[in-house]
Computed example of a mutant assay.
Amino acid sequence: MIQDSVGVTLGLGGTVRIGASAVEVSDLMVAFEAIARTGSVQGFADALGLSYRAAWARLQTYESALGRPLVHKTRGHGTALTAFGVSLAQALAAAASALEAGLGRETRAVERRLRELLIGRAGALTLAASHDPLLVEVLDEVGGFEVSVMGSRAAVERLLDGGVDAVGFHCGARGPGAAGPPFSSIDAAAGLALYPLFEREQGLLLAHGNPHGIRSLSDLTAEGVRYVNRQKGSGTRDWFDRMLAKAGLSAAAIRGYAVEEFTHQAVAAVIACGAADAGLGVRASAERLGLDFLSVGWETYYLAASRSLAAPALDNLIAAARARAGRMPGYRPAASEAK
Rank of each mutant, 00 (worst) to 15 (best):
F32Q: 03
A310D: 13
T300I: 11
G85H: 02
I119G: 02
A173T: 14
D277E: 09
Q231P: 07
A54H: 07
L317G: 01
T61D: 09
T9R: 15
G224S: 09
S234C: 05
L217K: 15
E100N: 14
H131Y: 15
L114Y: 02
A109W: 00
G256I: 07
L309D: 06
R230V: 00
Q60T: 08
E199R: 06
V136Q: 11
R158E: 05
A54D: 02
A258K: 09
S152I: 13
V71A: 01
I18W: 04
Q265W: 06
T61L: 12
P196Q: 06
A245Q: 15
Y302P: 00
A93F: 00
I2Y: 04
R37P: 01
T15G: 03
V138N: 03
T300M: 07
V110D: 01
S130H: 13
S87K: 12
P182L: 05
I18K: 06
V30G: 00
S218D: 12
T107P: 00
E24V: 10
L204A: 04
G43A: 04
R112K: 15
L317W: 08
T221A: 12
G163N: 13
T236L: 09
V23T: 06
I35F: 00
E157G: 13
A247E: 15
G235I: 08
V23C: 14
N229L: 02
R226H: 13
S234Q: 09
E287C: 09
E111G: 00
R58F: 04
E157C: 10
A245M: 15
Y195F: 08
A189R: 12
V71W: 00
A122F: 08
A178N: 07
R174H: 04
R115S: 10
D219W: 08
L139W: 02
V6A: 13
L127K: 11
A207I: 09
Q90P: 01
F32R: 03
F44S: 01
S295E: 14
K73H: 13
A190D: 07
T15M: 09
L204D: 01
A155E: 05
R174M: 10
L134S: 02
A173F: 09
H131S: 14
A320P: 06
V142H: 10
L314K: 09
F32K: 02
F198D: 03
G180W: 04
A20N: 11
T74C: 03
L309S: 07
P196A: 05
R115Q: 14
R237M: 09
P69S: 09
G163S: 11
R112H: 04
W298S: 06
R283P: 00
Y227K: 04
R324N: 05
L217F: 13
A96N: 11
